[in-house]
Design a protein around this nucleic acid. Structure first.
Length: 227
DNA sequence: GCGACAG
DNA sequence: ATCTTGTCGC
């Protein structure tokens, strides 16, 4: 996949926030026409002792059954600390290395983090979506910002996530008796379609398969490296 | 000043 | 995110 860097990753805290505020103006939060037949999931894992990062992307084809069609991994060193709200500055550079190796051009990408459900409406999925110029969905395991009401204990039930009087995402129950996940539009997509894609790619687990498999992939890559 | 806080 | 075995519940 090709992409634009848009800016340097070596920034200070304040400058990073300025970058987010500027880039968020470029986000497209409407559904973009075009069929969706391939869905990618991306995730990152790292070793606490070595400062090594591992990124992975797994691409699935939608159909009667989900079929894995490609996967790539990449690794590098971390150059930015974990600061809530600035996750993309930590994870995006290494994720981009993994996407660069990808031969497939996925129609939509699920990221392990937030989209616009973010203090400045510009989470990891928004940042990556903009750089890759691709539909992107935030698929987080926990909440960063916003409030929501109880979600019915039924697979597929959801409750809108409100932040500053605006709908920025949804708490989505992908499986009964399991905590909801947090879906938010990242780029070139709306919430309704984002939820539909998340549910369509779930396969009996809380986390949609593309992201779940990307998670397993990077953990495996990291363990093999440490040997 | 205090609490909250994606991964 | 990571360090880690058993264990409680559907």
């Amino acid at each position: 996949m090709e992409f634009n860097q848009l800016h340097s990753w070596r920034l200070g805290y304040k400058k990073a926030i300025k970058v987010q505020e500027a880039l968020r103006e470029q986000l497209i939060l409407k559904r973009i026409a075009g069929k969706i037949s391939t869905v990618a999931g991306a995730d990152v894992s790292y070793d606490k002792h070595c400062d090594f990062f591992f990124a992975g992307v797994v691409v699935y084809k939608l159909g009667k059954r989900l079929v894995k069609i490609e996967e790539t991994t990449a690794f590098g060193r971390m150059r930015f600390p974990y600061i809530p709200g600035l996750l993309s500055f930590r994870e995006a550079p290494i994720l981009l290395k993994a996407f660069k190796k990808l031969k497939t051009d996925p129609d939509v990408i699920l990221f392990d983090g937030q989209g616009i459900a973010h203090p400045r409406h510009f989470g990891l999925a928004s940042h990556m979506g903009l750089i890759l110029d691709r539909r992107a969905i935030g698929c987080a395991k926990s909440r960063l910002v916003g409030e929501f009401q109880c979600v019915k204990n039924i697979a597929g039930a959801y409750s809108k996530l409100f932040f500053k009087d605006k709908v920025v995402g949804a708490a989505l129950r992908t499986k009964v008796n399991t905590n909801p996940i947090f879906i938010s539009p990242g780029h070139k997509i709306n919430l309704t379609l984002a939820i539909r894609i998340a549910l369509a790619t779930c396969d009996g687990y809380r986390i949609p398969e593309p992201v779940r498999q990307a998670h397993l992939l990077v953990n495996k890559a990291r363990k093999e490296q440490s040997k």
